[in-house]
Amino acid sequence: MPGGGILVTTRTATVREPRNRAPAALTYKAGGVHPGRPSQAFVRPDNETRAGLVYASTLCRMQKETCMSSTVAAPSKTAPAGGAKGQPSGDNRYKMLEATMKRHQYAADSLIEVLHTAQELFGFLEVDLLLHIAHSLRVPPSRVYGVATFYHFFSLKPKGDHTVVICMGTACYVKGAAQVVSAIEALGGIKAGETTPDGRVSLMTARCIGACGIAPAVVLDGNITGKQTPAAVVDHVKGWLGNGS
């Protein structure tokens, strides 16, 4: 069962009118921008015009500095301008990310969906990538960062080649999940949430994966396994640490 590979294709494109028709003051207040109509992006009706303009100009400045995207000026363009650091020209992942944002009509409220896609494509969310998304959706960078760090699903650091997710839900807890965690922590010399120095294995804990009937549950590279023991999981992870596969 793929970990979350399915998340990418969430088809939410049909939610068109609500976003566009919603009153700007209500929906887009925080960003001060209107996603549906890029040409008016930085002017908020009830706002101090100067401030709005300054915001616009600073965003443009940032955009020049990072050269991540041309979408602030021309949001309908599908492919980013390219030539930026960490963005090899013709990187397909950027094209796919762009397609997702386009399907959401660059709406500010699709931020979480876009972050899901970005993480799916890139494995983790680099700051440059977040800036690119901020510019494309015309959301303030601080808010994008705030959202990305609020939700535990999003990772701002690269993950290891293999992942062990140990469920720490109540049922797993009473059946000894904590012992499994400490066994793996001892084996890899890392704490939960960390990756081994060689980048082979990431150890994570989950709140509850809903497999309480077969507790304790451990997700090994996306495969849920039930009724685990510390020894069994250690054996499995040893294999990952040992050989290069």
Partner: peptide, 12 residues
């Protein structure tokens, strides 16, 4: 009536 999915991101 249309239905769309929204995927949570790990926040209880």
């Amino acid at each position: 009536f249309r239905v769309d999915l929204r995927i949570g991101a790990g926040a209880f």
